[in-house]
Design a protein around this nucleic acid. Sequence first.
RNA 1: GGAGAGGUGGCUGAGUGGUCGAAAGCGCCGGUUUGCUAAACCGGUGAAGACUUAACCGUCUUCCGCAGGUUCGAAUCCUGUCCUCUCCGCCA
Length: 429
Amino acid sequence: MLDRKLIVDQADRVKQNCTHRGVKCDIDRLVQLETARRQKLHEVEELNRKANEMAKSIGQTKDPAEREARKEQGRQLRDQKDAAQAEHDRLEQEVHALELTVPNLTHPAAPIGGEKDSKEIRRGTTAIRKFDFPPLDHVALGEKLGLFDLEAGARTTGHGFYFLKNDGVLLDLALQRYAVEVLMLEGFSLTTTPDLARNEILEGIGFNPRGPETQVYSVENSDLSLVGTAEITLGGMFSGQTLDDGKLPIKIAGISHCFRTEAGAHGQATRGIYRVHQFTKVEMFAYTLPEASDAMHEQLLVIECKIFDGLGIPYRVIDTASGDLGGPAYRKFDLEAWMPGRGKEGEFGEITSTSNCADYQSRRLGIRFKKKGEKGTHFVHTLNGTAVANTRALIAILENYQEADGSVLVPEALRGWVGKDRIASNSTC
RNA sequence: GGAGAGGUGGCUGAGUGGUCGAAAGCGCCGGUUUGCUAAACCGGUGAAGACUUAACCGUCUUCCGCAGGUUCGAAUCCUGUCCUCUCCGCCA
């Protein structure tokens, strides 16, 4: 959510930003409604003031007839106020509905345009490997090695669900442990988070919990939804709070399950465990002072790179173009890992992403900070980044570390936690 | 799941229909005093929004978990809801 004053005062800038983002928003109408709303608000305040004055005078009036007369006047003032208030609230609702559709502003350095305008800005330290045998994709590898079972997932729950099995489980746990280790050393506090959250928190983060295009599962007869990412709960942790500036930045890592309906995503690269309805993720989240969010964003990106350099996975970093940013992000970097089994001769596939949402989420969630010795409060900046999304990381490891005999080497960084150097066919069920 | 109790400013805590955005204490900030520190004393000290101003100041509205209701008037009465605590039951 953007500052309304900013929308009104800089309508042209906001409009142009909407164009860059490829989002249709009726900014003119929003400005017009907001102006009307503010006028109504004055009316309400004025009537309130008069009614308060009247009410006060009644307390000091002794004469019974005079009291009755004033009571009647007071009643009338309140009625007028209620009418004005109702009109104001109606306008407020409309403004709010429009406001929710306005995307965040865009970082001046972010490329403008659609997906193909996104820029590659760096590469990982691991070179793309040349295979002297035809590499398999993760589905074939996983089946051969008994690491996951897609059919059983479909039988029990539906398409897009899976069982991890055997060494697949060990790899999953090792990835989490590895990511947690890195984040701990980077000064993050550790959490495991609720897998459900209130819908108002979802909305604050920028998810739409309802409607046909919703990305999340909601729980019937409640105002809860399954989270699509721990970003939701980690951002909700301090909703409505005012933080001391001395406490910032706050860096929190959260492990959660992620549930996504992937509505409208059918037909795309859905093979295997690339696009699933549930996976486990270690997420980074940061609250910063406004002037510190750019640097924090870079820091989150560097950590993501460190994690995948450490795993020995080749990747590139993408500075996402304006049209591809999604609503809340001010700027977004994606890590795309090289996946040798993807497409004909291998392709890059997204494995992590990190966004600077500036004050877009904190404004909706009411997360402020107070500077010592200064009056008033300001909104914090929020940032998020994936440390490890387990299914995608699993794909990258299997496909990049496969051997001619169909076995898979365990990345050195994970060996201590997996407990072996190589995964060979050893399935038991 | 059952039975109770409670949610007030940074904290503790008073406040059961008007003069309450709210006593008092603590904390914090500023000052006086003072080898230094401490103590003592004096003053100040919530937030959001709007109007006004070059800015400071000032004025108004709203906020006592949240949302409604009663009333001329609500922190105070009523309803719902969320949360916390205690006891009982159940349970990983």
